[in-house]
């Protein structure tokens, strides 16, 4: 009985210390993470409709000098190296973009990328001369070639949304842009994402991806306008590659703990036997 009382006192002290140095201290240091904003409420909400045929024509006229749409056999006029030299970053292929980002973000972004991304140095020039109708056509064209969101994996989305600047070296994914240009463009080489799932909590990543400036004011990370599903898939993918043995760990843990419970039973029986002869 006395031993149990001592154990209880120790447990209470340990739990108080744990709460103090983990949840409480973390809260004091990092504050509460605000919820992510996947609706991009600061941008005007718009339904984008149009004609894909017309959109394709408009795309070729306005976008294809830098952007390719491999899904539809359109390649960019400018090769990667030239683009990299002029913009300090490789322009993305837009095959799946319409399934990845929010339509009203797309509309605002095309006209004024710098304010939509909240990154004043964003490389793409604004196409403010395009009308809403024209943007609607282009969007519906991109929508018509894109794989549906359900068919895109976290890795696909990561490839389209993140790896122009970020490497994931443990997955052998290299940033599409040469780091030396990225350094000029962003002021530093963006962090590798191999362990990001462990370095940051899910809530942090969600809010950071949906609105980088909220979590890290002044950061060079642009807001990308990802749909909630896209962001969640990317985060799940990052978690998964950062902790690839999670399933194995959880399963093995049960066996080990089960074994130890049996061991505790046996050692208790042995102790009883030895001590019963004692008095």
């Amino acid at each position: 009985m006395k031993d149990l009382k001592i154990l209880a006192i120790i447990s209470i002290l340990v739990i108080i210390t744990y709460i103090g140095i983990e949840p409480f201290a973390k809260h004091e240091m990092h504050g509460t993470v605000p919820p992510p904003d996947y609706n991009y409420l600061d941008l005007p909400k718009k339904e984008l409709t149009g004609n894909p045929e017309q959109g394709k024509v408009l795309f070729k006229q306005n976008c294809a000098s830098c952007h390719s749409v491999q899904a539809d056999g359109i390649s960019a006029t400018m090769d990667k190296q030239t683009a990299q030299l002029s913009f300090k970053v490789v322009p993305p292929d837009l095959s799946n973009i319409a399934s990845i980002i929010e339509p009203h973000f797309f509309a605002a972004f095309v006209k004024d990328p710098q304010s939509a991304t909240k990154f004043p140095k964003f490389a793409m020039p604004g196409m403010s001369y395009l009308t809403d109708e024209q943007i609607g056509h282009i969007y519906s064209y991109l929508k018509s070639v894109a794989k549906p969101q359900e068919k895109l994996t976290g890795k696909d989305i990561l490839h389209d949304a993140c790896t122009r600047c970020h490497s994931v070296k443990y997955q052998k994914i290299k940033a599409q842009t040469d780091p030396k240009y990225l350094n000029d463009y962003l002021g530093k080489v963006p962090p590798d994402l191999s362990l990001m799932g462990k370095a940051k909590e899910e809530e942090y990543l969600a809010t950071f991806i949906s609105n980088p400036q909220v979590m890290l004011p002044g950061t060079s990370m642009p807001r990308l306008g990802l749909k909630q599903e896209s962001a969640e898939k990317v985060i799940a993918y990052l978690d998964n590659i950062a902790d690839p043995h999670k399933e194995e760990r959880n399963k093995l843990g049960l066996w080990v703990l089960g074994y130890l419970v049996v061991l505790a039973g046996l050692t208790y029986a042995w102790k009883r036997k030895i001590w019963s002869n004692l008095h």
Binding site: A264, T267, K271, K273
Partner: peptide
Amino acid sequence: VFMSKEFFVMS
């Protein structure tokens, strides 16, 4: 005697 109790505590 002492260690028999110890083994239980250890497990």
